[in-house]
């Protein structure tokens, strides 16, 4: 092997990398919020005794979870214009990512709600708590504690998956690799550097999330 690695050639593109990084963070944040909102609605609908509500929710979750994000993205960005819905790349990316995240968070939320046993609510009610108090002091905290780790790791998975939207030309972090590659012809270095930047993001988010978990759920302030 006689290839000269030149990572130094990438240094001048730090502005592009920072811009890509910021867009990746924005995409992840918006997707997380929209995905959670969709997920909450779908989780409630799926748990409903009315089939009119639960059946479509189940179909949505199964359809999204059993098809690739890339194909979902292509359907939104390339497919929808043929029925008259034209979206720019960023909007299409946000819609595809949120719809995808919605299905996964619905499953996580549903499992979380189910994890709190009915007897807990009954115990709280028999102690004289109102339904609202029982939900707020007994159910919510336990459900949150059960949901949090799964949601945190789903966030990291989704953040890594946002790299896929580079394929429709959204200039997020991964897209910068192909930009730098086209300018420098240092393909390997560009992709290796960008791929490792995601590792840094992952590590930062993981320690942030476990710090929050410890502060909120483990070291619980006594009242």
């Amino acid at each position: 092997m006689n290839y000269n690695f030149k990572f130094g050639a990438l240094w001048r593109y730090q502005d592009e990398i920072v811009q890509g990084l910021l867009l990746t963070l924005q995409l992840s944040a918006v997707t997380m919020v929209c995905g959670l909102v969709i997920g909450l609605g779908v989780a409630l609908a799926a748990g409903s005794p009315r089939r009119m509500l639960s059946a479509p929710a189940r179909v949505y979750v199964e359809t999204i979870r059993n098809t690739p994000l890339l194909v979902q993205l292509f359907i939104v960005y390339f497919g929808l214009p043929s029925i008259g819905i034209k979206l720019d790349a960023l909007t299409a990316a946000l819609i595809a990512l949120s719809v995808n995240m919605g299905a996964y968070s619905a499953e996580i939320l549903r499992a979380g709600f189910e994890s709190v046993r009915r007897s807990q609510v009954e115990a709280a009610r028999s102690l004289g708590l109102t339904a609202g108090q029982a939900f707020r002091h007994v159910v919510l905290f336990q459900a949150m504690k059960a949901i949090y780790p799964a949601l945190a790791s789903q966030f990291v998975l989704m953040m890594l998956a946002t790299s896929v939207v580079s394929s429709i030309g959204v200039a997020e972090l991964f897209h910068q690799a192909s930009f730098i590659d086209s300018r420098t012809y240092r393909s390997f270095e560009a992709y290796a550097l960008i791929t490792l930047s995601y590792l840094a993001l992952t590590l930062v988010f993981r320690s942030l999330f476990s710090g929050v978990y410890w502060a909120v759920f483990v070291r619980r302030p006594r009242r």
């Binding site: 092997m1 290839y3 992709y191 590792l199």
Partner: peptide, 24 residues
Amino acid sequence: VNLIQGTPLLGQLFVFFFGLPLFG
């Protein structure tokens, strides 16, 4: 495990796609 699970698969694909030829 952290290296693989902490980076996007898309990135790993491109690194191998451009990296393997460097090793002939």
